[in-house]
Structure formats: C-alpha cells, structure tokens
Nucleic acid binder design. Structure first.
Lengths: 268, 268
DNA sequence: AGGGTACTTCCGTGTGGCGGAAGCCCGGTC
DNA sequence: GACCGGGCTTCCGCCACACGGAAGTACCCT
C-alpha cells in the first residue's frame, strides 16, 4: 500500500472490510453503481473492486443488470429479513398498524432509533394522505419527527447529549432548534407518554407518536401523520396511536422480542 | 490449511468469502447463534470466526445481545431495503395490495422467483384469515403455490426443466407431483393468465395468482389466499387479483423498474 | 483514425489473514 | 474449594492468497 501509517487506515480497511465498504457505497441516493463508480467511491483500486464485486455477485449480495450497473441483491434483502429490529419488529406490529391505517387512512409509521438517527421500519400511506419526507429503510434526524422525539426522550443520556450538542437541523420555521427548548420538549414527552411534531418537518403536516415498549424499555415508536396546521388536528388520532402502540408492545413481548435483542447498538 | 486440494475448497471459501459464509449461517430457523455455533456451522476455526464476527459487528452487520448470541444487524436490513426486487418492488405494489386487502380481508401476497424457489416479498393477513405457511422473507417451492405456478410458467425454459426434473414435494393429497401434469398446468396458466392452487399447500386454503409485468416480462406475482375447499371459493376474488396485478405492473413501470433490473439472477 | 472511458485478465510481490495454542472466565459437580 | 469442561478472547509466527500495477479488450464519441 502507498499508505505509510501503521494504524488502521481510515478509508481502505483490511481484506473483508473492503468487501463491506463496497456494500456501503450503495445508498438510497445512489442505489445503482458502475464498477468504476464503485471503485472511486470506496477508494479501492479498480482491479481489486472488480474481484470483490465478482465475489459479491456470486454470493447474491449484488446483482448486475445488462446496463453494467450493480445493485444490491435480493440475498441481502433476504438476510435483512432476519434482523429482529427489521422484519421481526414489523411482523409483530403489522396487524395493529393495518387496523390504524384502515381507521384513519393517514400515514402510519413505525421506526426505531439507530445511534443518533431514526430509521423507518414500516410505513403505510393512502394515495391521498399528506406527502411526507420519510420512507421505509430511510433515516432521519431524531429531533424533528414525532417518532424521533419519542425515541430520543427515552434514549440513554449519552445519546441525548450527543444530539443536543450537535447543531439541530431546521426543516421549517416551527422546527425546534434550540437545545434548551428541545430539553423541555423531551421532558414533556416523557411526562405525557407521547410526542407531537407540529409542522416541524413539513409545513402542512402534524404527527403524534407513542412508544412501543418491551419489558419497560422503549424499543420503537409508532406515529400517525395527518394533514393540518395545528395540534388540534392531532387530537382525534392520539388515542388510536397510543392504543395501537400498547397493543404492539404486547405483541412484541409475546413474540419473544426482548429489549436485549431489540437494543444492541454497536457491540464488540 | 489442513486441506490438500488445490481447487476451490467446498466449504471454507477464500478470505471475504468466509465473511459471507458467516452471514449465510443465519437462517429463519436459526436466527441467533453463539460464536461456537457459528464456527461449527461455517466450518471456520473458532479464532478466525471470532475475528470475522468482530469485523461484522463493527460494521453493523451483526449485533450481539447480552446473552452472547449474534443476530443479523439492522445495517443488513437497511442495505437490503435498497434491493430493487425487495423494497423497490414492494413500494410500487403496496398501495394496490392495501386496496385488495381492505376489500377482501384475506391473505394478500407478493412474491418473486429466485432460481427455483419463490421468495415472498410482502404479505398482509387479517388476524382471522386462513393460516398459511408462507412468510415475508421466506422461500417456498415453485410448484405448489399459485404465485409459484405463475412465476414458473413464465420462467426461462432452463429453469422449468430443472424444476420438472427434480422430485416435486407433496404437501397435501391435492399437490401436483407428476411432471407431466405439472406441464399441463403450466400451459393452462400461460393460456389463462392466472394460476389457481387448489388445496395444494394446505387442505383448507385455495389461492389465485396473477403475474406482474414489466415491459412484457413477468417479474413478480400477486396472490390472494382464501379459506375454501374448492376453486369456487376463488372465483369471487379472481378479478380483483388480476386487476390489482395489472395496476402494480403499471406502477412498476412508472417507478422505472425495468425487467433488467428486476431479473438478474446470478451475474458474473 | 485517434483519444477517451470502462471493463477484464494476468501475475509477481509481500502483507495481513490464518489458525494452533495458551490463557481466561464462568458454572456445574464432587 | 478444588476440579473440570465449554465457550470466549488474545497472541503471534508462517506462508497462502489477496493485492494492485500494467497490459489487453471492447466500445463509445469526436
């Protein structure tokens, strides 16, 4: 290698690590890459990238279409289906989310926290519901959405501090960006047992979220997003969200999903 | 290595390949493994497995809970969400599946073919619908389910031959296991444009499936499973399934998902 | 034709993956 | 409390195998 540092190289990574770096190159914004793009994105020499990609293709982790671009393969999707916080959680929550959806016909969302972001696990949206920025498999800042507020309010202190220390992104004029105010909001979320995001992400949407618990720990959050310009619009769906979140909590426990299994962040 | 063969070792695999082998050890039946189990399952020495697993954990591909077991991590789920045939297809199909579900309140399923098996991408089931053996992220034989018949009927000849050459698994007394009869069934599926599985998987369920097309190629199949003991039970839902499948086809094309992107099986 | 881009293949080099072995921790048993 | 066994972690020297530069191929576009 042309690098001279003996420590762990920042970009390159060792052996199998390169393989993972190739997978990391795929994002929602760039879900299809040519070999050269891949090599550039990962900083791996072309010939090496070529070999790694061939290996991943043979395994099913990547697929190549006739236009020469690579995409994430179905094998990865299939494997991901085994993640407890992915499909496991979803399976438990689905029936209740469906009920909520049928009753409201608004956006119904289920999300978990991953480090300092929300990750959306499931979402139903009627064709005529308010458009929202979130999508399944997509991430979002913790501080703006209702699900995010619930998850943040019950996150370890260390995580909260990290979020509060970093500058908070402003989406609309209603977005809370003052750390002091956010602290107050989080306290209120803990007291009330649910969170409201009033036009903090988009100016035409309000959302309510309630926590999903496993053995007393918050492991996910459920929300409904409705069109509206004030918290009043939210009042009618709040009981439904809270009830569904409780029902999901029960289903989660019944499915044998403990907070242990549903927490695990970095590990070693 | 203690092996003496110079060719590609059957189990061990090379470098990054071992890493993928570790991931492969996780299945729906064994979604949580200890380090030792992992080492045994992959045939990799314990110390090597330890290193690989640490690498995967650091990346987020595996998570370790306090009981010492490893599970597939959320990072894999997130990546899998980028697979066109996974979430991409699902996103396009979801609204129409919801409609169908609301109208019928029966099992509504979306599946694709992966080599000689069906893989279920999405499924809705009311709490009181017929219990079925399939689950999202799970595989199944092509020859028995209605979705499988649709996918098999329009698969490349080479795939059909392989399926017909292998012994066909019998689930119930109605399962078609004679290759000659199956050929006839497939021809009828192609002619009719939809498939019926009459108690071929479980004795109390009948299902109808219709193909989802992209630029004229069959890329997925949609089905509804209803309780019933004869094909008559199916008649009432057939038009709905066919209409929804067509609607999904349109949505798939509109989403820019070409057959190219949705086909790609092995690649090199 | 010529230059550019993208992909594929080859092969000598040396590095980092490999795995045996020893040590550690915990829980069960006598 | 000593002993034992199973599972996990760490260490380290050897050498296979991954690495990537370079040359070759294919296919644009000018």
């Amino acid at each position: 290698m042309s690098r001279r540092d003996p420590g762990p190289p920042p970009g390159g990574r060792s052996a199998g690590g390169k393989l993972l770096a190739v997978l990391d190159a795929f994002t929602r914004e760039r879900p299809a890459l040519t070999l050269s793009e891949l090599a550039r994105a990962t900083g791996v020499p072309l010939s090496t990238a070529h070999r790694l990609v061939a290996e991943l293709c043979a395994w099913g982790g990547l697929e190549r279409s006739a236009d020469g671009r690579y995409r994430v393969g179905l094998r990865v999707w299939e494997l991901g289906a085994l993640a407890p916080r992915g499909l496991g959680l979803r399976e438990a929550a689905l029936p209740f989310m469906e009920d909520l959806y049928e009753v409201t016909h608004e956006n119904v969302q289920l999300a978990v926290r991953q480090d300092t972001e929300v990750l959306f696990i499931e979402r139903f949206a009627a064709r005529d519901a308010v458009p929202v920025l979130t999508q399944v498999g997509g991430r979002f800042a913790l501080s703006a959405t209702a699900v995010g507020l619930v998850l943040l309010a019950h996150a370890p202190a260390e995580v909260q501090e990290r979020v509060l220390a970093a500058p908070l992104h402003r989406f609309t004029e209603h977005t809370v960006v003052d750390p002091r105010r956010l602290r107050a909001v989080l306290a209120e979320v803990r007291r009330a047992g649910c969170a409201v995001s009033d036009r903090q992400v988009t100016v035409d949407a309000v959302s309510v979220a309630a926590p999903v618990l496993a053995r007393g720990e918050v492991v996910a959050a459920l929300s409904v997003v409705v069109r509206g310009s004030s918290a009043a619009a939210v009042r009618s769906v709040t009981p439904g969200v809270r009830a569904a979140a409780r029902a999901i909590s029960r289903a989660v426990e019944q499915a044998g999903l403990t907070p242990e299994v549903l927490s695990a962040q970095p590990a070693g």
